[in-house]
Amino acid sequence: MIFNAVEIMTPILLAALGGLFAELAGVLNIALEGLILAGAFAGILAGAASGSLVVGMLAGALAGGLLAAVFTFFSIRLRANIFITGLAVNLLAAGSIPFISTWMFGTKGVLRFPDLPRLPRLLEGVTSGVGFIDSLLFGHSATVYLAWLLVPLALVALYRTPFGLRLRAVGAREESVIIAGVDAVAYRRIAVLISGVAAGLAGAAISLRLGVYLPNISAGRGWIALVAIYLGYRHPIGILIAALLFGFTESLAGAAQGLLAIPGTVLLGLPYAITVVAMITYSALRARGLRRRRFIDAHF
């Protein structure tokens, strides 16, 4: 079950890490869902056409980045409402993929690619002697390790480079950054592009692992990633924990399905339900914490 949780959390972690860049630059990127979908579709197409998983991943990243570029063009360049354009990205992905799919393969349903190489598993057979640690760390798909690698990378990029400092400043205090001579708009665009690339990788990680493309393959992971950013206190390590938590609850729910005889259709809504409960709980706790701190500040 822990093994499964790690596999489930990977796309969420990838998308949330990218989304963190946008969030810290002051953009709530509600387009993650559509960006993941684009990455999943482009990733498996390119992977199957080239026979290379690396090419597939790169294509996923490219598709996510390109769609994010469209997103920034409208939302930042043309100053359109960022939430409406975010929805537009989601709708564009959901609407145009069936179109392309029908045009290329004659169906908008499930696409199978039998020739696609299987995603390699790394560190198989390595053992620490403790079952729990083994299933957490070893023998996972290569994409899992890619996601883990990106955690320290994001940490360094955001907190140990001038780029990261400016990016965070753009989100926290835009006016001072502009006075300091930093092109805030450019930083915001780059941040959204990064989140697009990461979401595209997340999508490719989903479809390449399954080896098939299903309609709505992203299944809400973009939204879950968005919530994971908050639950992780807008910090890469926190996001890692939050994503793991989501992965774990989801795999637990999957296991409970058989025991409790919950109908499968109802369970489709479960990831969303878990996510919204987590989000409300988090904000309630945080609000209480803030109030207490304010009380202490005021009285002592």
Partner: peptide
């Protein structure tokens, strides 16, 4: 429509 409607 969503892309264009609030774009300047």
């Amino acid at each position: 429509i969503f892309f264009m409607i609030t774009a300047h």
